[in-house]
């Protein structure tokens, strides 16, 4: 869906060729007006001058990008040096999303593989079990997570009550809570593509390798993992990209004290800062980052796939 831009099967049917542009017209119009035009407009806004306390002045300016990348001191008249504030917000987002992706992979891969090796009839039920929580509103899931992890929440009650810990574990309002929240939000996105890839895996390969005296873990590393790699890549993207722009988890689980990109952008439009061009510029930088990641993975996929 994200990485491999496979547009269809190899055989090209032409049954509806004469009507193809008419058939595409509604989607083209809708998406051009409601996605492409707004994104272009946002790009335009990122080059405008900010109006004090929200809004824009229609004058070309690079100050939004300048603010992002260069630090001119608290008072704006020091010589410019590289600005770390926003870069570190981006870096933190990438780090948080990365850890969440890794956690999803560590839990998601064995799960997906396990499901794929169940008898065919059972598989649907397992997949079903993994997907159900995803249909519950993301907000509610995040809030539930917070409820579970609270200092006086059920988890800590259990840990302290059973004598495993003498004092409740503080998880809420830490970076770990944010990682946990992101991991929890997008875990099914990791399991499903890996499952789809693992289901098609030909176990004769494993057997052949085992016949050549490979151990189980060597088989896993050398044969199985490379075979399901497209699924892993897709899963990682599906977890990483939404995590990167998320603001519910940092807001609700992280105590809103460590900005991630999503919160930084939101603050420019809905909160204290009111700097629209800067919010647009930060969005553009995020968008560019995501597109670069998708391009690299698409290229890798294309290389590895053939």
């Amino acid at each position: 869906m994200a990485g491999g831009a496979s547009t269809g099967g190899s055989s090209q049917s032409e049954t509806f060729a004469p009507a193809r542009y008419w058939l595409l017209l509604p989607s083209w119009v809708t998406l051009t007006i409601l996605v492409l035009a707004p994104v272009s407009m946002m790009m335009g806004y990122s080059f405008l001058t900010k109006e004090f306390r929200g809004g824009v002045i229609w004058e070309f300016s690079l100050s939004a990008y300048d603010q992002f990348f260069f630090d001119r001191g608290l008072f704006g008249d020091d010589p410019p040096v590289l600005q770390w504030t926003y870069i570190s917000i981006f870096w933190r987002s990438i780090w948080q999303a990365g850890v969440a992706t890794l956690m999803s992979l560590v839990i998601g891969f064995p799960t997906a593989y396990f499901i794929a090796t169940r008898p065919e009839k059972e598989r649907a039920i397992w997949v079903f079990l993994v997907t159900i929580p995803y249909w519950v509103n993301l907000l509610i899931r995040t809030v539930s997570m917070k409820f579970l992890l609270r200092d006086q929440g059920p988890l800590n009650d259990l840990l302290v009550g059973s004598g495993l810990l003498s004092e409740p574990l503080t998880i809420v309002n830490t970076n770990f809570a944010v990682q946990l929240g992101l991991f929890y939000s997008y875990l099914p996105f990791m399991v499903l593509p890996i499952y789809a890839a693992a289901e098609r895996y030909n176990f004769a390969l494993s057997e052949a390798a085992a016949d050549l005296y490979a151990t189980r873990w060597t088989v896993l590393r050398r044969i199985l993992l490379p075979s399901v790699k497209p699924g892993i890549v897709a899963g990682c993207i599906l977890v990483f990209v939404p995590s990167l722009g998320s603001f519910l988890a940092p807001d609700l689980l992280g105590g809103a004290k460590n900005f991630m990109i999503g919160s930084l952008i939101e603050e420019q439009f809905k909160g204290n800062a009111g700097n629209w061009p800067f919010g647009a510029a930060a969005s553009m930088i995020l968008l560019t980052l995501v597109m670069v990641i998708l391009l690299i993975s698409a290229r890798q996929q294309a290389k590895g796939g053939k």
Binding site: A2, G9, Q12, A19, V35, G245, S283
Partner: peptide, 29 residues
């Protein structure tokens, strides 16, 4: 159109446009 419309110039572009909302982070949209 994309799967039954044969090969045509805007085919890849159309697919790209349709997947765009998936690729753009939600906060950016």
């Amino acid at each position: 159109a994309i799967l039954r419309g044969g090969r045509f110039k805007l085919r890849t572009a159309s697919f790209g446009l349709i997947s765009l909302p998936l690729m753009v982070p939600e906060i950016v949209t």
